[in-house]
Design a protein around this nucleic acid. Structure first.
Lengths: 135, 135
DNA sequence: ACACAATTACACGGATTGGTGTAATAATGT
DNA sequence: ACATTATTACACCAATCCGTGTAATTGTGT
């Protein structure tokens, strides 16, 4: 298979979202899947790992551990969970195992979340937004 | 701006995101805040509550509890957590306390997440598993 | 004042989580 | 074969989470 690591296109997610799911029922199954999705992101270690992997293309466990100031076991634990969900994948080079993000849509969601945080920070700081004039 | 029948405008979030945060450092503080954000969404009860509140403008605790098939205490617990984060707000009418979503950006994020789930479902359905060839 | 309904406050118990420490596994070099 | 490094597997423990049950609080009606 063509393994060209040079095509870094991340904008292929939710392109046709439109308004379809605006009134989706959100069944129990969907709610459960959503819960799992958010759960995997609800940990600062995993968030940092994803972020580092998003910037550097590939990183091995020891480098990630060093970058986060954590022990390799702890990092490996979280990487394992990310791997189980299919978010990252591994490639072995000698003693080192290099991880990289394969589900780039996750990064898209993460990016959106960071954006929301900044928005709410702005709101707290008193930045006059258009919405505030609505009342 | 399109056709808004009920003046439901939710698209005021992350409008100017651009590429600024594409290489943001993601400090420990940011990671921690992100973790909290995802944590509040990492629960199916809260997800259902948010979804119901997104569809119906306002709902009281008992109706929400009835809708989810849960006891009012459990629902109230989760509503409280959503309220603490400023995601929902309350309005008292007699004995009833009506909740509604005020942080509509959260709904935006939720919508995005649903979208990603559908994408990955599509991917699973459409791609012949490589692992099956492994034996 | 009293009874009643809706909501909330609070402590409890079972379940999950995440880092740690130890040990096992895999790959390299001598 | 042996030592060394990198990664993983596993049991342990403290912390958190969430629904439950009980009790307290708030508002309504008589």
């Amino acid at each position: 298979m063509g393994n060209n690591l040079d095509s870094e296109k991340v904008e292929s997610c939710c392109t046709r979202e439109s308004r379809t799911s605006a009134e989706a029922p959100l069944s129990d199954a969907d709610a459960s899947e959503l819960e799992d999705l958010f759960k995997i992101l609800a940990n600062d270690t995993r968030l940092k790992l994803l972020h580092n992997l998003a910037l550097a293309r590939e990183m091995c466990v020891c480098d990630l551990a060093d970058s986060l100031g954590m022990k390799p076991q702890a990092v490996s634990n979280q990487l394992q969970r990310l791997s189980d969900r299919g978010i990252v994948s591994t490639r072995r080079v000698g003693n080192n195992v290099y991880y990289r993000v394969v589900d780039t849509c996750i990064l898209d969601l993460l990016h959106k979340a960071v954006c929301l945080l900044r928005d709410s920070e702005d709101r707290r700081d008193g930045v006059v937004s258009l919405a505030s004039l609505n009342r």
